[in-house]
Design a binder for these strands. Sequence first.
DNA 1: CGACGCGTTGAATGTTGTCAAACCGAGTGG
DNA 2: CCACTCGGTTTGACAACATTCAACGCGTCG
Lengths: 244, 244
Amino acid sequence: MSQQCPHSTEATCRDCRMNSLCLPIALELDEVDLLNDIVQRGHPLHKDHSAYNCGDEFRSVYAVRSGAIKTYNVNDQGIEQVTGFYLPGEIFGMDGIAHNQHINSAVALETAAICEIPFGRMEELSITLPSLQRHFFKLMSREITYDQRLITLLSKNSAEERIATLLLNLSARNAKRKLSNVRFRLPMSRADIGNYLGLTVETVSRVFTGLQKQAILDVDKKEIEILDIPGLQQLANTEVLSTR
Amino acid sequence: MSQQCPHSTEATCRDCRMNSLCLPIALELDEVDLLNDIVQRGHPLHKDHSAYNCGDEFRSVYAVRSGAIKTYNVNDQGIEQVTGFYLPGEIFGMDGIAHNQHINSAVALETAAICEIPFGRMEELSITLPSLQRHFFKLMSREITYDQRLITLLSKNSAEERIATLLLNLSARNAKRKLSNVRFRLPMSRADIGNYLGLTVETVSRVFTGLQKQAILDVDKKEIEILDIPGLQQLANTEVLSTR
DNA sequence: CGACGCGTTGAATGTTGTCAAACCGAGTGG
DNA sequence: CCACTCGGTTTGACAACATTCAACGCGTCG
């Protein structure tokens, strides 16, 4: 068993309140402890600090315990593309598996606690724990379906629909973490939202004010209150992106 | 050993000329035979016929031996989104793993031969063949990076850049199959291209004629000749999408 | 032959991007 | 305390690119 700091209530996977999100349900308690033994809990990652950078050797995938992470990559012209936002209970870093090095960078949008899961040891462990192997296949597959929804969103929907969909998605992910699905704080900037959704900052801003004028949202900087969920769903005009 | 039809020169994985593309290189020959034993080779899939449909129970992933496959899904409003084109040597169908059912449909763009790889048996086999497990992790991760490049393309690039990028991508994939990288036939319609790239048919058509006027392409219906690869790369202004 | 699918072309429209300016809050230094 | 900068955000005017709508050409198939 790994040692446990008396101040932390989440120092083991078994006790972590996010475990229902990031672990396969099928694991027995003693199996959870096996996984727990390979998980590394580092120091908190402060805002704008990175968990890994594009080009780094791929060693681990990561689970968010608190805070928020954004992943992005920079192409040869120096243009940044935000590829995802990750909230507590979600796993990121799987992009690196194919090429043994990360093709994204991952930075903290706000101070975050993350668990590092060394992939090689996870692979070994998954040989004796088939449900763990399957879980990772599923996580990756989910990432694929998530990306495909995003592709659809980008190629078929208007600015307003894209933003409405993102808000509903964040709302659903909050609900999954037993937080409010109508009031929450956006961890990312307008620029990040625009970048992620293929829009300019100005357009994002205009849509936010538009939604406010329609009494669908109440926006105060990064604090969001969704006043009219059905209305927002109607505007989104899409299935909600999966909750990862 | 599975029986072999005397007319087919590709009835085993060991002999298939695509195996360097769809199998992990690390497999020993006798291990290839183990995999070969679980692979099911069906009848040819004729144009417009589907390998699976959205909602079907997920059982298998598939390797393209000849022809071409497109995957797409239809959202609740009935809008179709093409999510990928798959050429010989490439694997499709991994979308279904997360939810045990396919979230895409897969149809043949032209008569295709495909190998069905039952996923459950592949998972079992991969417990004794770690390089196979790793191969599948890599395939899925590659799918993720591919989708992320597409996301960047859709959210940051113009119609001309998107089409130039797709053409270069197809060119590179042909090269990988030891075919010409400058002359090839598009297996998909203009509508499919537009759908995939988030453009209308008209825009696709206009860009093709534009590229022709710039003497970068020679287009004759679906037959493409790239006259000026460097010029096309300059227009694309992107890294080529990975070759899967 | 006519119907149909597919692709091309033209003109008008509109959504989003671009450019520019101003706002706001937080922090800094005089 | 105030003036200042700075990053993030908002707003406006204008332009551009892609869409929409419409028509037409071309080949295939009944």
